[in-house]
Write a protein that binds this DNA or RNA. Sequence first.
RNA 1: GGAGAGGUGGCCGAGUGGUCGAAGGCGCAGCACUGGAAAUGCUGUAUAGGGGCAACUCUAUCGAGGGUUCGAAUCCCUCCCUCUCCGCCA
Length: 425
Amino acid sequence: MLDQRLVRENPSLISRELGRRGLHVDLQSLQLIAQQQKDLEAQRSKLQSEGNQIGKEVGSQIKNGLDPKSTEIKALRERGNEIKKKVNLLEEQEKEVSSTLKQQLLNLPNLPSPKCPEGKNEKDNQVRRNWGNPRIGNDLKQHWEIADQIGLFDTEKSVKIAQSRFVTLLNQGARLERALINFMLDLHTAKGYKEVLPPVLVNTASLTGSGQLPKFAEESFKCADDDLWLTPTAEVPVTSLHRDEIIPIEKLPVRYVAYSPCFRREAGSYGRDTRGLIRLHQFNKVELYWFVHPDTSEAAHEQITADAESVLQSLELPYRVLELCAGDLGFSASRTYDLEVWLPGANAFREISSCSICGDFQARRSSIRTKDGKSTRLLHTLNGSGLAVGRTMAALLENGQQPDGTVLLPKVLEPYFGANHLHPE
RNA sequence: GGAGAGGUGGCCGAGUGGUCGAAGGCGCAGCACUGGAAAUGCUGUAUAGGGGCAACUCUAUCGAGGGUUCGAAUCCCUCCCUCUCCGCCA
């Protein structure tokens, strides 16, 4: 959420910065509402102050032995009633104005960082660096073809159990998924991340706090009879881990690594990536999340990205780092690095991690602050996938495929998986 | 699902209509004492919004919302949540 004060005092800045996202909003009317809200509040509190005085006066007069039925006190009471009526009226108006304001603010995305490059869409994203040597060849298979041969998962059975866009992992596939989750968690906890296994059903407040609601309700699965949703990413519960809290400055940065299944409706992506492990309604992800002091968030962004990259490096998977342009940023992000892994079968890079700095955007929505000496201020939050597990498996299959139908696995997985390759059953 | 108890500051806990943002304690910070520390003593210690250069000041907040009243943590109504016991259950 954006700062109301900024809306009042510098709407043209907001206008300009949201424009970089390709969003054109009428900031003038919003500013008017914000100003109105402030004015109403000032008026109301002045009246309330007067009313409080009268209340005190009556109290002390009665204490001093004045008859409660005396004309003096009657007059004060009448005055008090008058004020109350006015206050009620103002409160009504104020409530309306501030709920409109809040509604509008909750629907506005974060401002892009000054460092975020200009651009309209994904075509304008910039490659920052490459790692590893992409494997290229004509006879390389796509991951679902390899998986089929080996018998790693069954999509038809998943339709019977649930719907399309679900996967049921079997045998070596199930074991590999489990191995990857454990490997990633171990890698990050060894760096000092605190491990979290959060609830995957989250309430409306949590989804609002991290930015998924109110705008993206149609992207999440909702429980019919409860105020609960299936979490689209562990970022949601982890943000709310500290909602309405003040984290002492000496405890920062607080770094979490959270494994969770993730659920997304993928509304509007019919026909895209219908095969394999790339786009599913349910997938596993290991998420990195930092709560940091505002002054250190930029360095933290580089570090969280490096930590996500370290997974790909350990798994010997070639990738590139993309910086998203302003027009392609997610709702809560002010700056984002995407990691794209090389898929030799698809002959393309695919997103496998997204590392974003959200500034105080989520912290304001979730009211997460730090105490810096005497003053409390909003802290900054960052998140990054470390990594999306299903896509990691797809990358391992395509990159490790051998002519004989087996798949070689990276050395680091052997202790977790119990073998250095996959083989047809 | 049935029965009961309860939601007060960072924590514990008092407070049933009047100057209560809230006693007391714990914790924390500063000062004093000390060679240093412990103990002790004193002082301070919520958040948000508005006004002021500042000292400071106004408003709101005792789970949430509404009501009664000149005045509500305290009385009334509605809702939410937590805990305990029983039942069911991985």
